[in-house]
């Protein structure tokens, strides 16, 4: 025990076994000052941006609230009905087309063209009646 105590005493007198780079303590203040300036500038940038970030956040909040209110203002039944109509139309069309042969589809398309042609004929008649100034009562009498 005494020998080891002597070792510890002896080692104490040997001095500090650790070193530092040359001029480390001379440059310590300058390095610290630079670090403190960097920290302060980081804080300043955040502080400068703070009011703008707050404004942006409040705009985002108002917009979100407005969107939510607009969504809930539409009558739920209306939304349900219009959605259902769209879905059933789409399903029906898909189902009808898938169950028809190519020839049948061509025929349906031709019929639609005929309907469009009929519309054109009707438009021509209306134009003619307007041009000739023939009233509805004259047509009924005729």
């Amino acid at each position: 025990m005494k020998i080891e105590e002597n070792i510890l005493e002896k080692l104490k007198n040997e001095g500090n076994p650790f070193d530092v780079p040359q001029n480390y303590f001379d440059d310590f203040e300058a390095k610290l000052s630079l670090k403190m300036q960097t920290n302060e500038s980081k804080v300043t940038v955040i502080q400068k941006l703070k009011p703008y970030l707050a404004i942006a956040a409040s705009f985002a909040f108002v917009f979100t609230i407005w969107k939510i209110v607009a969504f809930y203002n539409v009558a739920p039944n209306e939304k349900f009905v219009s959605n259902q109509e769209q879905i059933s139309d789409s399903i029906a069309t898909d189902y009808e087309l898938s169950s028809l042969s190519e020839n049948e589809i061509v025929e349906i398309l031709a019929e639609e063209t005929v309907i469009e042609e009929d519309d054109a004929e009707q438009n021509a008649i209306i134009d003619y009646l307007i041009e000739e100034d023939i009233s509805f009562s004259e047509i009924v009498e005729y």
């Binding site: 070792i7 076994p17 070193d19």
Partner: peptide, 15 residues
């Protein structure tokens, strides 16, 4: 592996 340690072998052992 400390390059800034210049102590003797016994000082290393103490550390």
């Amino acid at each position: 592996s400390d390059v800034y340690f210049s102590g003797s072998e016994i000082q290393m052992k103490l550390q």
